[in-house]
Amino acid sequence: MPETVLTVDELTVHNHFTDVPAVTGVSFAVGPGQVIGIVGESGSGKTITCRALLGLLPELFEITAGSIRLLGRDTALLTEKEWTALRGSSISAVFQDPASYLNPSIPVGRQLEEVLRIKTGLPRKAARARALDLLTAVHIRDAEYVYQQFPHELSGGMLQRILIAIAIAPEPAILIADEATTALDVTVQAEIIDLLADLTRRLGLALIVVSHDLAVVAQLCQRIIVLRGGTVVEQGTVEQVLFSPQHEYTRLLIDEHHRFGLDRFLTASDRAEARA
């Protein structure tokens, strides 16, 4: 197994529409089973970075410097065909609004099955069985029932779990979760965070968690990168970033939680009492 699944080196992406760089000099590496978090707001470049990793930069955006190496291969050299083969089987992603990534007129189970058949070449019956396995693997209790449901009949949390199932079906080495929990209720968010933690442990999946919420990232990641205006303003382990932040923006994020979040109310003993 390679030491790192993904290595990003001084990535720079230029936005030709506004003639301003969208991302400048971003560097990080992720190995199997490791989780790295990217924290930033809209306009920080986090989404463009994710799209660059997937080879899905929108029109008028161009990588002008730096490199991305996925499983040892330089992605700048890939043709469109090679990219199609790589997506899903090497690198996969889930995004913010789960309902918009599913066909509303096809039951969700069949959509999962379709991905399996295309990506792994399994015959119909085997694909169906594997799909049910996957649904159980993403903590869906009644897999048979959910298999037949249409997207509009399922809740946001359920849909996101199905999209995660679709994303991991071809057994990628790395999964990108781009604001995957932002549109969900806090209780559902906790479930999805649990699920992602579980998957990295069990499958050795490398994970990139992108969020504007530092706390979400803190739950899952070993390392954190903070992006602002397209550049990395802070980078380090979770402990380093949370307890000795260097940049004022990071401090602002931490401060917000202390001022407005639950942190100010809870202590370890309070938590124990809450359980009783």
């Binding site: 968010q189 530092l214 739950q219 939680h257 809450a274």
Partner: peptide, 22 residues
């Protein structure tokens, strides 16, 4: 600090904070 109803307990328990994991 002293949620009574199971749902309230779940709410409090789910909210991600910096000091501890959920």
């Amino acid at each position: 600090n002293h949620p009574v109803h199971p749902y309230t307990q779940l709410l409090v328990g789910s909210a991600p904070t910096l000091t501890r994991a959920g």
